[in-house]
Design a protein around this nucleic acid. Sequence first.
RNA 1: GCUCCUGUAGUGUAGCGGCCAAUCAUGAAGCCCUCUCGAGGCUUCGACUCGGGUUCAAAUCCCGACGGGAGCACCA
Length: 483
Amino acid sequence: MLVKEKKERKYELPELQDVDGKVVMRIAPGPSGPLHIGHTRVSVLNDEYVKRYGGDLVLRFEDTNPEKIDPDAYDMIPEDLDWLGVRCNRTYIQSDRFEMYYDCTRKLLEMGKAYVCTCDADHWRNLKEQRQACPCHDLPVEEQLDRYDRFLAGEYEEGKAVVVVKTDLNHPNPAVRDFVALRLVSHPHPRTGDRYVAYPMMNLSVAIDDHEMGMTHVIRGKDHLNNTLRQEYVFDYFGWKKPVYYHYGLVNIPDTVLKTSLIKQSIRDGEYTGWDDVRTGTVRAMERRGIRPEAIRRYWVEAGMKAVDIQFSWENLFGMNRDIIDDASNRYFFVHDPVRYDIDGVDVIEGSAPKHPDHPERGSRVYRLEDPRTVFLSGEDSKAFAEAKSVRLKDLCNIDYALPARYAGNDVSVLKHGVRAVQWVGRDSVEAELLMPDGAVWKGLAEKDLASEAADMVQLERVGFARIEGREPGKVSMVFAHR
RNA sequence: GCUCCUGUAGUGUAGCGGCCAAUCAUGAAGCCCUCUCGAGGCUUCGACUCGGGUUCAAAUCCCGACGGGAGCACCA
């Protein structure tokens, strides 16, 4: 066997700026559900850099909005990361750290860099729009602190007061003028119950945590650009050293349901079977479909960290996955929507096919058909057979159309004259189901050797790659990956 | 409306003043090989958004227009 030397360009992420020894980076999801393909970019990029430079990769659950938490996500997200090969060596949960956020906020109030605002939210926003301070903005520190004590004690109703971090009301960018740091929420938190009523907003908690956890570099989506600007005010007020920020472009993932709230609703409605429903874009669905984590990793490394908005291409991802799985995937016949043909004109038909054309050492599927010589073709191939009047049963023999069909020798060269070779199964086949990406289930038959295949990825010849999901006596269920 | 980010083939990417009649991957088309519509081999298709400027020289720098995207939440 020849060793193929394929020349290909090395895909490498650019060096990070200002790396001084080890790096500390983070993945900071909100625990609203499991990870989806969109989350894998930030996960892979951070992981790649921490592996390159050494250091810590932090997993931080940003669960500061009690209304958007799915308690299962605290377990599902680490599982998803683990499958992706992303190794986080420190884990934090923000709902464990409320007291610290409160302390920092108190210091900001003492420094005069924050205020407790009791204005109407719309009014406050309008004033900001016009670069004007609300009456609470310039109240004396003593009064701010007094309000703050009452704020934390729950003496204000939800929505009646917030703590605001001052930035610059004259800032030309309206998005960075004074931002809310703490709000009141009466909805119980899955982890802390009703112990707290004051909930930090992400710009506060992220700034504090990024400093406290020692982040050296932060990679995030471009949608956080303005949040970075806001968070930098907090760093500056405390005199903290800022991490180096990178903002990659937005990813448009076509034809895929990603929104966790929608998926959750569809699961509840019974439309989707679960978080791993193949119609969704969750990491679980990728895993189930036989997409390898290495393919996802390669995809994002090649995409890099540019700030350009990009279109995600399933085709490209599938191409990369095919590269990875082709060599390991043994070949089998699967017949969708089977149509029966008996073959006349011969007593016994024998044939064989390698499990993998590039790996004869893996053995063969051996065929022997005796009276009655029965085969099944897919519904589609059956129609084509009726029209073409002849067909080759791959690795077995040729037949001519009739009822019953007529044996037509075993001359492979007919393929050169336009006869099609199709997959088929005999009477010793097993029931098989193939779950398609649109949720449809293709029922059919598979050759019996498939039932004893040890690996989980196979290629169903002329159909595509599939992952074996379940084996029962006499029945195999599979999930379609891609061609 | 204001502010910010960003524009290289269908998609993603390399190049970031001369080595660019622009890289690689994926895709598409064709051929070879293979008893698969897979893999492998070969060939082909296909891009610097536009207009000004700077310069001996611009995909590369500057300005403008146009296009794409985001933010202006008591979500993250």
